[in-house]
């Protein structure tokens, strides 16, 4: 019999067979994220005269299940910028913690200078590109809203591949198909956006959220909306979609009781 310490308390090999330790080894190559699990849907944003309006609903879906209904997908950074996250929620939380530690490190210096939205967007897109290049992506589409180095409105997108672009209006996911055309109606170019008032921008974004709720099955009517100007961030996290009309519903043919 084996009296060595590593055998103490173990079932006897001659009676029970050798211990099957195969589960301890993770065979094969390292596994990385292959798909998002708990997800957030669209984020929409629009530049206006003095800043940016950005919105996203408060839902996190687990496949087609509306799993979490109180999820804040707009995240503040240093009271100067807002990042709106679409895609995987756990990756969003990771990035949020990353930004939090970045903010703390910024505070170490006494100058008080914090990164502006443009800097933040560059940082995030490099993180995302690095992770996609390691075949270990952070599964998000995100919009960064705030002001640039010259205190002009700034809005840009970055995604899990590290692709980046900027435009007077932006929308991720379904929003790119449903909301972006509406936003481009009010702000076809930078010049038009620079003439929009806050009220006009808010109205366009809220209307977009409504359209998305009508047509995106992974959306909900509770949402967060933020306005970023040089005076700071006005973030509301428990907004309710209002004045919806379902009058169009009985006009829709092809499903339900009216087949033709």
């Amino acid at each position: 019999m084996n009296h060595l310490p590593q055998a103490w308390g173990r079932p006897r090999d001659d009676v029970y067979g050798a211990y099957d330790s195969s589960y301890l080894q993770n065979g094969g190559p390292t596994q990385h994220t292959q798909r998002p699990i708990v997800t957030g849907t669209s984020v929409v944003a629009l530049k206006f005269k003095d800043g940016v309006v950005i919105a996203a609903d408060n839902l996190a879906s687990y496949g087609s299940l509306a799993r979490f209904t109180d999820v804040k997908r707009l995240r503040k950074f240093a009271e100067t910028s807002v990042v709106g996250f679409g895609g995987d929620v756990s990756d969003m939380q990771y990035l949020d913690r990353l930004l939090n530690s970045l903010d703390i490190q910024e505070a170490y210096g006494s100058s008080g200078h914090t990164l502006n939205a443009q800097n933040l967007h560059t940082y995030l897109s490099k993180v995302l590109y690095k992770r996609r290049s390691d075949f270990n992506p952070l599964w998000n589409q995100l919009l960064v809203a705030g002001l640039d180095g010259e205190s002009k409105p700034f809005l840009a997108a970055a995604d899990l591949l590290g692709t980046t672009f900027s435009s007077p209006s932006l929308a991720t996911g379904y929003g790119a198909h449903l909301a972006q055309p509406l936003l481009r109606n009010v702000a076809p170019d930078e010049e038009a956006a620079s003439k929009l008032s806050l009220e006009q921008a808010l109205e366009a974004v809220k209307e977009s959220m409504k359209v998305l709720f009508y047509r995106d099955a992974r959306s909900m009517d509770k949402y967060s909306i933020a306005v970023i100007t040089k005076d700071g961030i006005d973030l509301k996290e428990n907004e309710q979609l209002e004045k919806q009309s379902w009058a169009f519903a009985d006009q829709i043919r092809g499903y339900g009781t009216q087949v033709n």
């Binding site: 996190a60 999820v71 804040k72 997908r73 929620v89 969003m92 939380q93 949020d96 939090n100």
Partner: peptide
């Protein structure tokens, strides 16, 4: 003095 949200916390 407030219960701070956990870093990256979603929901309340």
């Amino acid at each position: 003095e407030l219960e701070l949200p956990v870093d990256g916390q979603v929901g309340s």
